[in-house]
């Protein structure tokens, strides 16, 4: 990437929330993937799982280069969370809305990543929501607020490039609101 304005954004969330798919949806380069066979079918039925990181790159219309890092979802890989958050300007937290533990997952991951860097803004993307549940996003926002975290919550399909771009643009807007120019000055 030749542009001198570079930002680092971390995608996180539990196993199966769509982190690898989200990065794949928007990356301008073939993403770097560290997926291996998933042997823990009791926790999730998916065939593969990320064990180190996903990496992609995105060039925004204004010339800002965004480095996209995806974390492994499982707690046993939490050592990677701190490594990957180092230098990041914000966190996109993805939650599987169809999971029975969705709200607990939201609390746990938001708390953990807020602890890793209390200054990093969050944006929440909830996937696989029930379309008939009109209050679903409010419940997520209230759960966050109960933990002292204020963050926008979106209903997303991470296979859809526009949905993932919305999360990134929202994160950049939050940074601009905090300190005008901060998002584009960061490296």
């Amino acid at each position: 990437m030749s542009n001198d304005q570079e930002l680092k954004i971390v995608f996180t969330g539990p196993m199966g929330a769509g982190k690898t798919t989200a990065i794949r949806s928007i990356s301008d380069i073939p993403p770097v993937s560290t997926e291996v066979d998933n042997t823990d079918r009791a926790s999730h039925t998916k065939d593969s799982t990320t064990v180190a990181l996903d990496y992609g790159q995105l060039l925004l219309e204004d010339g800002t280069a965004v480095r996209l890092y995806g974390t492994p979802g499982q707690e046993r890989f939490s050592f990677m969370w701190e490594i990957l958050c180092n230098g990041a300007i914000g966190v996109i937290l993805l939650i599987d809305g169809s999971s029975a533990t969705a709200l607990a997952d939201l609390r746990a991951y938001a708390d953990t990543f807020h602890r890793i860097n209390p200054d990093q803004p969050f944006v929440i993307g909830v996937g696989r929501t029930n379309p008939e549940d009109a209050d679903v996003l409010d419940r997520y926002a209230q759960t966050l607020a109960a933990g002292g975290i204020v963050a926008p919550v979106f209903d997303v399909d991470v296979r859809n490039r526009e949905d993932v771009l919305l999360l990134i643009e929202t994160l950049l807007c939050i940074l601009e609101t905090r300190v005008p120019g901060a998002a584009h000055a960061a490296h």
Binding site: T34, V36, V51, A52, R76, F79, M80
Partner: peptide, 10 residues
Amino acid sequence: AAMSSSLQAL
């Protein structure tokens, strides 16, 4: 165990 699998994948 977890770290070695991450490093091996990397």
